[in-house]
Amino acid sequence: MAQPAVVYEECVAQESSWDADEALTAVYTAHYTSLVRLGALLLRDTGSAEEIVQDAFVAMHSRWHRLRDPHKALSYLRTAVVNRCRSRQRHLVVVDKHTPRSLPDEPSAEQAVLRTAETDRVIDAMRTLPEKQRTVMVLRYYADLSEAEIADTMGISRGSVKSHAARASKSLRQVLEQSR
């Protein structure tokens, strides 16, 4: 019943001869949806996630001469998306202090219907986590990144990844236990 983690399957062949436009199309086709989903999990706002991922693709295009490799491009995009989402979240925290309920956190009616009760509990529990812990959990369980990859993507040490993950798991377990 567990879904195989194929989000970042390497469906892009090694193609270093691509120019920036070709690379853009190919990498877009392979990874756009999963990157928007990653952003949406971090931000809980699909519109902002789309905007951020598009920014990242525009940046990747202008940097293709330096990346030249779809795998590097993907890790570049992922890092860009995570960084931008994180700074957006930090901004939202500031805004939140002034406007008690921020809109992006309100799931749409359709989403609420389609989601299972189990997923609901986990997603709600994730909202109680500090930003770094939440990001680590999303990268670990959605993007299926290794500790080292998470560390690179977030620009923190492996030790920090480990401790954020440990703390996040502990509080999630507690919250889920209570809400059962």
């Binding site: 989903r37 389609l114 997923t119 986990v122 959990m137 670990r140 959605y142």
Partner: peptide, 13 residues
């Protein structure tokens, strides 16, 4: 549980 829920949530998008 984490994996399933996050993928489930992601696929709504």
């Amino acid at each position: 549980l984490m994996r399933r829920s996050l993928h489930d949530e992601a696929e709504q998008v």
